[in-house]
């Protein structure tokens, strides 16, 4: 296994001797799919194992505190959810259901987990996409605008990035709420209706991500700008903006793409806090609710969703490598 610390370190993973390319491609795709299935299975297993360790009886949790149910009722509920069967049986039954796309039913809300997640997916996808777009835009502006020139501006931008990286998102959210919703009354305080309610949460989620991306991108750009090919381009009379945009940026992009992929997965975690600050509905709010209620099937469903997002994004990232860096294509 690769020993990289990013979790993605397999872009140039196939230096196999070039036989005919079609089977090789198929084999690569098959391996990818197998890897994806392994991650999903692993995530389901980890979540299932973790929740077997939850102290207390799920039936009591399900019924809520202070509900006095007769032992017969409890037994009936246990049987209904299969909780009376041995743990390995529960595990394999669960995996079998997963294969048919059945994520089970939430204990607390008495509804299919897939429906619950489906209902809440919209607001979070909107939030995540807006935040990601904004973060990449900010990072590009900050890094491309200040890499290797105008020392004062560069230092200022570095300071802003350091601040953004060091600020917890929930605090940024509280500051923005205080300033723009309570003092200036520009944006609504809470809710999920329309564009105005999306602005502050998206900015909150985007800022730390933008800071991290800008730092990595600037470092990459400055390294690239020191390389001989940049000198060559300059000596051909290419303007300094074109040198950065056409030559250096492409070189600096690979680590940034890796990081963006990883950060996209982590947005789901950030959404828990940001949705809590702004009182928005969504996957984050659902996750918090599920964990405080010890809602076993719902928690596993959310863990699986997050693993799925990770798998899809790392596949996209690998494809993007090929688009960005032609050297990886000829391998």
């Amino acid at each position: 296994m690769s020993t990289g610390t990013t979790g993605f370190a397999e872009p140039a993973d196939t230096p196999a001797p070039a036989r005919s390319s079609a089977p090789r491609l198929l084999r690569a795709a098959a391996r990818r799919l197998l890897g994806a299935a392994a991650v999903l299975l692993g995530a389901a297993t980890v979540a299932f194992a973790a929740l077997q360790l939850v102290p207390g009886d799920p039936v009591t949790v399900m019924l809520g505190p202070g509900t006095a149910a007769t032992p017969e009722v409890k037994a009936a509920i246990q049987e209904q959810y299969g909780l009376d069967r041995p743990v390995p049986v529960q595990y394999f039954t669960y995996l079998g259901h997963l294969l048919t796309g059945d994520l089970g039913e939430s204990y607390q809300l008495q509804r299919p987990v897939a429906d619950l997640i489906g209902d809440q997916l919209g607001p979070t996808v909107q939030l995540g996409a807006a935040a990601l777009g904004l973060a990449v835009l900010l990072a590009l502006l900050a890094a491309v605008g200040t890499a290797g020139r105008r020392p004062a501006l560069r230092a200022l931008s570095s300071l802003a990035e350091l601040l953004a990286v060091s600020s917890p998102s929930y605090w940024i959210g509280i500051l923005l709420l205080t300033a723009f919703s309570f003092q200036l009354r520009v944006f609504p305080v809470a809710g999920d209706d329309g564009f105005a309610a999306l602005v502050l949460p998206a900015v909150t989620l985007a800022l730390p991500v933008a800071g991290m991306l800008a730092q990595v991108l600037r470092e990459g750009l400055e390294t690239a700008l020191g390389k001989p090919f940049v000198l060559t381009a300059r000596s051909r009379g290419v303007g300094s903006a074109a040198v950065v945009l056409r030559h250096a940026l492409r070189h600096a992009a690979v680590p940034v793409v890796t990081l963006t992929g990883w950060l996209t997965g982590s947005l789901l975690g950030g959404a828990v806090l940001v949705e809590s600050v702004f009182g928005r509905p969504g996957i984050g709010a659902l996750t918090l609710q599920a964990t405080t209620n010890k809602d076993l099937p719902l928690v596993i469903g959310l863990v699986l969703l997050s693993a799925l997002v990770f798998v899809v994004i790392s596949a996209l990232v690998d494809l993007l490598y090929l688009v960005i860096d032609p050297r990886l294509r000829t391998d």
Partner: peptide
């Protein structure tokens, strides 16, 4: 151990921490 680490690294830290707090 490394497969397990791969799986855990594929989940956002906050989600993992929430899962742990649940337990």
């Amino acid at each position: 151990l490394m497969r397990l680490a791969d799986v855990l690294l594929s989940l956002p830290p906050i989600l993992l921490a929430l899962l742990a707090v649940t337990v």
